[in-house]
Nucleic acid binder design. Structure first.
Lengths: 127, 127
DNA sequence: CATCACGGTATCCTTTTTGACACTATGTGC
DNA sequence: GCACATAGTGTCAAAAAGGATACCGTGATG
């Protein structure tokens, strides 16, 4: 059987933190989940909301989120393909984590490097 | 100059989530910070509270946390060496994130793999 | 004297993660 | 016909992260 991705938590007070962080360990996972908090999205909707993610990586991380039970995936048998992604109840229960990350990021993001997508519409509008 | 570790956030609503998660991206960082929420610790105190971490990695991640301004490090000029690590104000402001992770982990940790340190004192006591 | 504690460093290696690029089948619009 | 949209897959490479192992200087202890 394939490698188990989450299977080494120790029984110390920190291990529940470790368990939680391990589930959203993946460069885009927390951002994907954050966007899904707004409701069901299709693949390219998510993709458009996350500049910088490649199709390959988005697929990978959505699959892992689905495997971990954090995201539900619904495929409609039609052409062109239509696939909907939704936070599962378990994924929704991560809401407080995601909101805490967002709040903290909002308060502190300017401490860290400049946005790399200079010239993007929002940046131009601000100019 | 070396690679800048945090320097590519895009101006989308998700980027503040991305910024926050990037700071605690590192296998042991969130657990270290969680333990430091209890107050100042010395190096080996932290190490003993985190089974599985190697000295090498703990040093690395403490250094990165210090570089990012999340942890304060105080060296006492004595023998044997004494170094104290404390959450900085910025690190403390991550409290809600860490607590949200802990709460979520506590509620859900049994969904994921078994603890790997079977036989540890707490495990034996439970038996 | 040997062992231990402290808090590391140095070096190298392995594993994992991420990304680049090309490709896919169908329908639609021009 | 071509370009586009949809939601991917396949393959390979590069980069990054994490870990294994040995070693360090000082003092304390038995």
């Amino acid at each position: 059987m394939g490698k188990v991705r989450h299977s080494r938590f120790d029984c110390t007070p920190g291990c529940s933190v470790e368990a939680a962080i391990a589930l959203i360990d993946g460069k885009w996972k927390s951002v994907v989940m954050f966007h899904l908090m707004d409701g069901t999205h299709r693949f390219n909707e998510i993709r458009r909301k996350i500049p910088g993610v490649t199709q390959r990586m988005l697929t990978n991380q959505l699959r892992e989120l689905e495997e971990d039970g954090l995201v539900d995936r619904k495929v409609y048998a039609q052409v062109p393909p239509k696939v909907e992604y939704t936070l599962s109840p378990l994924g929704q229960s991560m809401g407080p984590v995601l909101l805490a990350l967002k709040d903290w990021g909002d308060a502190n993001i300017d401490r860290f490097g400049k946005p790399v997508h200079a010239g993007s519409p929002t940046e131009l509008e601000a100019a």
